[in-house]
Design a protein around this nucleic acid. Structure first.
Length: 152
DNA sequence: GCCAACGTTGGC
DNA sequence: GCCAACGTTGGC
């Protein structure tokens, strides 16, 4: 089975790609959207490659490459009453939210901006660029992945 | 099950 | 800060 490719958004003010590089690996806590959860729980495999995307910042775009570093497991923050991600409806017997660990993979020679991707005709169909898209985790096709790397 | 109200995301 | 898009909630 070939590896899949993903794009995961993060606000760099909260957790940036350089934060990931420092920490090497990070549990992707706090996803509270069912589609995004399902990608992590049902479709991600260890070794899948990830575009680490910076959103809600001065220059939105891809900051670097990461990878899926664990099998899915319950997001511990859903059980933590002190966490902003606490979910009173989740139980340990029946967890509602799952996550994977995300690992630093490699730097890019420079970030790839959202604007550049919008300007590439081959990426017209990319989910990231469709209007109204707000999902924080998105699948990326192998073709899109290669096309984006060639923008540098 | 419908749908209005509300909250969040994220580019600009 | 604005606002379009869209997900969730809750009354009925």
């Amino acid at each position: 089975m070939a590896i899949k490719h993903w794009l995961m958004k993060s606000e760099p003010d909260v957790f940036s790609f350089s934060d990931l590089k420092k920490k090497k690996s990070e549990p992707w806590t706090g996803v509270r959207n069912y589609q995004a959860r399902n990608f992590m729980r049902d479709e991600m495999k260890t070794g899948d490659l990830i575009f680490f995307y910076h959103s809600s910042c001065e220059t939105p775009g891809i900051a670097g490459i990461a990878s899926v570093a664990s099998a899915p497991y319950p997001d511990p923050t859903q059980f933590d009453k002190k966490s902003e991600y606490f979910d009173p409806k989740a139980t340990k017997e029946n967890p509602r939210w799952f996550l994977v660990d995300v690992r630093f993979e490699k730097d890019l020679s420079r970030p790839i901006t959202l604007e550049e991707m919008k300007n590439e005709k081959k990426l017209l169909e990319m989910r990231l660029l469709q209007r109204g898209n707000r999902l924080s985790i998105l699948p990326v096709t192998s073709e899109e992945f290669e096309t984006i790397l060639k923008l540098i």
